[in-house]
Design a binder for these strands. Structure first.
Length: 210
DNA sequence: ACGCTGATGAAG
DNA sequence: TTCATCAGCGTT
């Protein structure tokens, strides 16, 4: 169980190899559930278990940032897999993605929520809250809790101050798939994945229509 | 339901 | 140079 995981043992595990990300994005999104996001911040480790993801798949996906071709912002998505695509959104927040598939094909997995595992006190300080269940239950929140901003855009998730390491295999019966949150196009794809019963999974807001 | 906040990219 | 939009969040 999560409570038994020790940070030293986790950080000693090799990060997921680049080949993990060189696969269909939807598969990567599902397989990232249960893995651990490891942030090294000024010598300290901040660790969270991934409990919610979304797949954004190429220029043919109208919700993907690459839907209208390559731009300075989304350039990292066109690069090799296994790197972080971090962007600034709504004037205040950042979102973290893991780039997938072959170089030249723009796709990524948005990390939407984590279960805090280690470094909780630092996360609370960065988020200005004492409520553990409100620390990392959203893409903007988890970036704030782990001090992830555009300086980490392009960081190598296979070996840097921001990595992802394997977790224990997830019970497949716990995985749910729904439409992605916060988008207006591409809602027909069930490309949001999360672990049922996790208190850290985010929830769609009411009335985002027109 | 609303306001905050500013980068982004398309249009002019 | 404007303008609408935006893979979110906290407060009302």
């Amino acid at each position: 169980m999560t409570a038994a995981v020790q940070p030293k043992s986790l950080s000693a595990i090799d990060p997921l190899p680049r080949e993990f990300y060189l696969r269909p994005t939807v598969d990567v999104a599902r397989d990232l559930l249960g893995c651990y996001l490891v942030r090294r911040l000024e010598g300290e480790l901040l660790i969270g278990q991934i409990v919610e993801t979304e797949a954004y798949v190429g220029e043919g996906d109208p919700a993907c940032h690459a839907a209208r071709g390559k731009t300075p912002r989304n350039a990292v998505m066109y690069g090799p897999p296994g790197h972080a695509y971090v962007y600034f959104i709504y004037g205040m927040y950042h979102c973290l993605n893991a780039v997938t598939e072959r170089e030249g094909f723009p796709a990524a997995v948005l990390i939407r929520a984590l279960e805090p595992v280690f470094g909780v006190e630092t996360m609370k300080r960065l988020r200005h809250t004492r409520n553990v269940e409100n620390l990392t239950n959203g893409p903007g929140k988890l970036c704030q809790a782990m001090a992830i901003d555009r300086r980490l855009n392009g960081a190598d998730l296979c070996g840097s101050d921001l990595t992802i390491v394997p977790g224990h295999p997830v019970d497949l019966s716990r995985i749910r798939a729904t439409s992605r949150i916060g988008i207006r196009k591409g809602t027909e794809h069930l490309w949001r994945f999360f672990l049922a019963n996790s208190p850290w999974v985010s929830h769609p807001r009411l009335s985002r229509s027109s």
